[in-house]
């Protein structure tokens, strides 16, 4: 999603996963121009992000 290429706010696990996928591709790409599509859905990421924020806000109260 534009402006959110590493996921959603405070979803550290997802942000980390996307970077690890990038780093992995540094060694696994077989040719220049190759594109790897990740099995991630924006709707799921948003939902997970909301849930994480809800839990964090509960903790902060």
């Amino acid at each position: 999603m534009m402006g959110h290429h590493f996921g959603v706010p405070r979803h550290k696990e997802l942000q980390r996963r996307i970077i690890l996928e990038m780093l992995d591709f540094l060694t696994t790409a077989t040719r220049s121009g190759e594109v790897k599509m990740l099995p991630l859905k924006w709707a799921n990421a948003r939902q997970e992000g909301k849930e994480i924020e809800r839990r964090l806000e509960l903790k902060e109260v």
């Binding site: 534009m2 402006g3 959110h4 290429h5 590493f6 996921g7 959603v8 706010p9 405070r10 550290k12 942000q15 980390r16 996307i18 970077i19």
Partner: peptide
């Protein structure tokens, strides 16, 4: 580009803390 997420957590577009 939409900065709504980045304003709350810069890492969504510039993942400096994760790195």
């Amino acid at each position: 580009y939409p900065t709504v997420g980045a304003k709350r957590d810069l890492n969504v577009i510039f993942p400096i803390e994760r790195l």
